[in-house]
């Protein structure tokens, strides 16, 4: 507890280099939300079970609520706030808006991140691949069918 074991870390987040002094065991999400004030990444469980906290790390969707920040030292992180900087991310966001693929929206940033990672890796995934990529993510309002439609629309463009 406290800052007694703090270490210096260098994180590249949304294209900007951040030199951070943090307890190495702090999960990444607390650094993003509380130190860097990037509140778009959501905490849903803190147990890597719900997907609300997904960020892109070197292009892959990674959950940020458990893994300590020191693991990300030197890596390139994109949060929901930076996702529109990527061509795929922007397309996914537009498709989510066009399909109204959210109700309360708390799961949305994790889903946009997951969809962006999926379409960056395989531009035309089949339905089963899409569903498998989203299965780590919970939505409790039941916007699932809309999210799947949005991803279909993002693929078609």
């Amino acid at each position: 507890m406290g800052a007694c074991h703090a270490v210096n870390l260098r994180l590249k987040i949304n294209g900007i280099q951040h030199d951070i002094r943090s307890d190495p065991d702090t999960p990444l999400i607390y650094v993003l939300r509380d130190e860097l004030k990037l509140k778009g990444t959501k905490l849903g469980c803190g147990l890597e079970q719900c997907g609300a906290c997904a960020v892109l790390v070197d292009g892959k969707a990674v959950l940020s609520c458990v893994t300590p920040v020191e693991v990300f030292d030197g890596q390139e992180i994109t949060t929901i706030e930076g996702i529109s900087e990527t061509e795929v991310g922007k397309r996914v966001q537009q498709a989510f808006i066009a399909q109204t693929a959210a109700q309360c929206g708390y799961c949305t940033s994790g889903l946009v991140v997951a969809a962006t990672a999926l379409l960056s890796k395989s531009p035309k995934p089949d339905e089963a691949t899409t569903k498998a990529a989203l299965t780590p993510h919970l939505c409790r309002c039941g916007s699932h069918p809309r999210v799947l439609r949005a991803i279909k629309e993002a693929i078609a463009e």
Partner: peptide
């Protein structure tokens, strides 16, 4: 929704 997809909606 525009804010939600960009992580700018405040909860």
């Amino acid at each position: 929704i525009t804010e939600m997809v960009a992580g700018r909606f405040t909860y």
